[in-house]
């Protein structure tokens, strides 16, 4: 137990002085995990997060997710996702949209993940990504890969690895190129008990400083859990709730950037049993 606490603590506090706000593709759906520390968050898969997570559950699931940045409609992302278990592997599907008529991004992905020996999960995802920079240029597109791993070190402790765009694919434009972030994430999750979960995560985009995240999720009653956490420098606090009504799950998360304002994430998912 000491070892696992050490891991999570280490991931949470390592090199805090390196941290700045992370750059992510805008069409990326944000996770409902506390502080968006989704890499080792095995409870729920969100589109474009660690694809290995989809093999940690063996039920059909559909989900919708809405992200609103700084209370501006034009900076919102809408996504839908689904996970479909099969005999060989679990398939994940995701589709998202960001922006408005003058600038928008569309991303669609197919993930395949497999569970090996219940202690090791591997997933791979390929996304079609298209961006409309201006009506004159039209859509430019490319294919982006994602790879993820979840390792179960003990019943209570998980380590996750996720990389988005490891091949550093970019979009060539007429005069320049649009850089698509290449992100390396390492995360841990530690279950103090069935009710209390602690997450820690380090994210590194090649061209941006290292970013840490940490958060807790507490299942207050069977139908309701509270999430609290934060990330980055300047610190962005994150607060959220999940409501469970039979197979339906409703997630609401809010975070406050000290400079730019409030972001809200709203999720709805249904599990077929």
């Amino acid at each position: 137990m000491k070892l696992q606490l050490f891991f999570t603590l280490f991931f949470s506090v390592f090199c805090q002085h390196f941290c700045l706000t992370q750059q992510q593709p805008s069409a990326q759906a944000w996770s409902n995990a506390p502080a968006q520390a989704s890499t080792a968050y095995t409870k729920q898969w969100t589109a474009y997060c660690n694809p290995a997570i989809i093999s940690t559950v063996d039920t059909y699931k559909i989900a919708a997710n809405y992200v609103n940045r700084f209370q501006l409609k034009k900076l919102s992302t809408t996504s839908i996702s689904s996970s479909i278990p099969t005999k060989i592997a679990t398939i994940g599907l995701a589709l998202s949209h960001f922006g408005y008529s003058q600038y928008n991004e569309i991303q669609g992905g197919v993930a395949v993940a497999r569970n090996f020996t219940d202690r090791f999960h591997v997933g791979m995802q390929f996304n079609y990504y298209a961006v409309l920079l201006s009506p004159t240029e039209g859509y430019k597109n490319t294919v982006i890969a994602q790879i993820g791993i979840i390792s179960k070190i003990s019943d209570a402790f998980f380590i996750g690895f996720h990389t988005y765009n490891p091949a550093q694919t970019n979009i060539e434009l007429n005069l320049t190129e649009k850089r698509i972030p290449s992100i390396f994430s390492l995360g841990t999750s530690y279950h103090f008990s069935d009710k209390l979960l602690w997450l820690g995560q380090l994210d590194k985009e090649i061209d941006f400083p290292l970013q840490w995240r940490t958060g807790f999720e507490y299942l207050m009653v069977k139908e309701f859990s509270l999430k609290i956490g934060g990330y980055g420098n300047p610190f962005v606090p994150n607060l959220g709730v999940s409501v469970f009504i039979k197979q339906l799950q409703i997630d609401l998360n809010f975070e406050r950037n000290p400079t730019l304002g409030i972001n809200s994430i709203c999720g709805l998912s249904y599990t077929f049993r």
Binding site: F14, F116, T117, F120, I149, S151, I153, I159, F161, L202
Partner: peptide, 15 residues
């Protein structure tokens, strides 16, 4: 951190 999931499968994380 080095850990083995089984005799055949080993992982390592470095920071």
């Amino acid at each position: 951190l080095q850990y083995a999931i089984s005799d055949k499968l080993k992982l390592q994380n470095t920071l």
